[in-house]
């Protein structure tokens, strides 16, 4: 393996690295956002109707079990996409996100105390308003926890797409491997890990900022 002093290579390829990083973020984050948007109504349905839960939760378990490379490979078969379409990576990532979050959202909504929802109804909230301002905020800590796992996993799984010709930092990994370029390989891995941890930390901070009551409760050791 050939690991030179990295600066010359980095300097020469800064533009490519930046482009690959941008592409990686687009490939990884968009599906997580879409997955989140889909999971909230699905999770709500699962928390509300036993039948919906009976279908959605086992289905999520099955989808989880399918290895990433297999799922990426099967998207063109299922959706008719071209063999190198960003969707081939994004659809599986969205599926994994949904599979993870549907359960989190449903558990979190089901855990909202009955007397709280009863009180909200009795005070005169309309159903949608009540869901958005009472139940959903109370589910936020659990949803953020699930989202953090989903986003970090998505960042690392996106690299697998390079095996079927889809870009992002995974392409620097395969390229570095084929060219026996250790610098390229290590830079790509480091960028993925660091970006994943930074996004994770950001989510943690945002989650804390929007749920001030959680810390207040912990401070007293009281339970809700």
């Amino acid at each position: 393996m050939n690991i030179d002093w990295p600066w010359p290579w980095l300097e020469r390829n800064l533009d490519d690295i930046a482009e690959a990083t941008g592409e990686h973020l687009f490939l990884a984050l968009l599906p997580v956002l879409v997955g989140l948007a889909v999971s909230v109504p699905l999770g709500w349905a699962a928390s509300r109707w036993r039948v919906a839960r009976g279908i959605l939760v086992p289905l999520a378990g099955v989808l989880y079990t399918i290895p990433s490379l297999a799922l990426i490979t099967l998207v063109p078969l299922a959706l008719g996409t071209r063999i190198i379409d960003p969707l081939n990576v994004q659809v599986p990532l969205a599926i994994y996100t949904i599979a993870l979050l549907v359960r989190s959202v449903s558990d979190a909504l089901a855990a909202v105390p009955r007397e709280v929802t009863a009180a909200a109804t009795a005070l005169g909230y309309r159903p949608v308003h009540q869901f958005l301002t009472v139940e959903l905020p109370l589910a936020v800590p659990v949803i953020v926890a699930g989202l953090r796992v989903a986003v970090v996993s998505a960042m690392s799984l996106t690299a697998v797409g390079a095996l079927v010709g889809i870009g992002g930092l995974g392409q620097l990994i395969t390229e570095g491997f084929l060219r026996n370029n250790g610098v390229e390989l290590v830079v790509a891995i480091a960028l993925i890990v660091v970006l994943a941890l930074v996004i994770d930390a950001l989510l943690l901070l945002v989650g804390r900022a929007v749920t001030p009551w959680v810390r207040a409760q912990r401070g007293t050791g009281a339970s809700a």
């Binding site: 970090v152 960042m155 390079a162 990994i173 395969t174 390989l185 993925i192």
Partner: peptide
Amino acid sequence: RALPELGLLTLLVLL
């Protein structure tokens, strides 16, 4: 969890 599996494999083989 943040470490890409593909990166770990290729790095170890390359090393």
